[in-house]
Design a protein around this nucleic acid. Structure first.
Lengths: 242, 242
DNA sequence: GCAAAAGTGTTAATCTTACACCCATGC
DNA sequence: GCATGGGTGTAAGATTAACACTTTTGC
């Protein structure tokens, strides 16, 4: 076996200074849901090169900030969002992806309930945009959005995360509409209800919808132990094939 | 709506120089398979801080190198591996994860056939190590390995990628042994064969194993259109629930 | 002929899919 | 009373899981 020539970390750094010249950013695909449509939080880019094109919310990671903390900070600072479901998806690092220089970006998606998380009035440029009505974005943000949407679709088939897009109390019809909006398919009502009850994810609140112009539906909430604001939740042996 | 103050990329970069001080690395979890064991290619760390601990193969991304090219270069340079299956898994970016400074790392896993890809004699330190016989590694490499292993296990249930770990021709028994080694479970032979033939992934070569001390099995190969050296392959409607 | 692994089929249980009618409420 | 969506069950088909014996080869 080769004899080891040990390096110390100090020497390593001093001999590789030319590599410590990359910026790291985080781009957040913040999904919401309203009026039977999946939404994403965007603003019009304030980069000259991409003027008026839709842009995801992102920021550079601070020199002393853990990567996994950055998306939470960005959601707090830029959108006033706290305690959201967040998941890392993919890191994009083409040399030419950003006009300012070598900026690689890690994409996260998060799921928030639009109704209970109001946008700060100071961020007048931010708005919720229909996901399926976006054909172009600034930078490589359209690819980032598509990648996150694909991951979201895969994930909701197995893990109870869509509830982060709904208010605490919801009817089965609202839940089914949400699945249909995300997956882009129609589902059979009876079979959907059977599967959801089989999964045993929900608590029947013994309450009814109010102010609906038709027969009110029963209200449910997610079981407490399945709530997952923060780290993704792993369930064994529970495939929900919607 | 707020009036836009447009920034140009040039100004953006000059005012954010303090952010361009991060190094980006890639760590490769190179899986192999031999003697019914899943293996990973490792070496003994040449960092003083982690002397003699097992380390993944990695390197800093070059200033003018796309992130997605780096793992292929690293496999070529460090292990003489060409045309391997490669997939990005996760990016790790704790402030304190690397003793040399702010180094964030993107983890990739790849799948190679140990028998047809011999290690270069110059890299005497590299070796194939049983995955389930590793309890500790340098840096955060054990977490990286575990994350990649989890992703591999999920992925092989739906996509025909394990074939990258086998020689061109293989028997159904070898294939089943491989699935069992990766998943860490025993599978029923008859049911396994039924599922594999239903999937229609294989071509019967009408050849037999040779030099085995028992009745030889038939040899198969993966259908050409399912080969996936390079980009991950998406199959619609083909869940292989092993 | 014996050791070792190859090859093969059936049944029961479970899950998935397709499908239609009555009910409760607001107006 | 009518429009709207809420709520519910069944049967056929597909899939999965459990399980054992005969065959072929090398030695």
């Amino acid at each position: 076996m080769q004899k080891l020539r040990l390096k110390s970390a100090e020497i390593e750094k001093s001999t590789h200074l030319e590599f410590f010249k990359i910026a790291l950013s985080v781009d957040c695909v913040i999904f919401g849901y309203d009026k039977k449509k999946l939404k994403v939080l965007v603003f019009e880019s304030d980069f000259e090169e991409y003027a008026n094109m839709l842009s995801l919310i992102g920021d550079l990671v601070q020199p002393e900030e853990d990567l996994e903390e950055a998306p939470y900070r960005i959601l707090r600072e830029r959108a006033g969002l706290h305690d959201v479901y967040m998941e890392q998806v993919y890191t994009f690092g083409s040399v030419s992806r950003h006009p300012s220089g070598r900026v690689i970006t890690t994409a996260y998606f998060s799921l928030v309930d639009i109704k209970t998380h109001k946008l700060p009035a100071s961020e007048t440029n931010l708005h919720w945009h229909d996901v399926d009505d976006i054909s172009q974005m600034a930078f490589d943000h359209k690819i980032i959005l598509d990648t996150c949407l694909t991951r979201l679709r895969e994930k909701i088939l197995e893990y109870p995360i869509v509830f982060n897009l709904l208010p605490e109390k919801f009817s089965l019809r609202e839940l089914q509409d949400l699945y249909e909006a995300i997956l882009g398919v129609e589902l059979d009502r009876r079979n959907f209800r059977k599967r959801i009850t089989l999964k045993n994810w929900l608590v029947d609140l013994n309450e009814m919808e109010e102010d609906v112009p038709h027969r009110p539906g029963k209200l449910y909430k997610l079981k407490k132990q399945l709530k997952s604001n923060g780290k993704p939740l792993r369930l064994k042996e529970q495939n929900l094939v919607i």
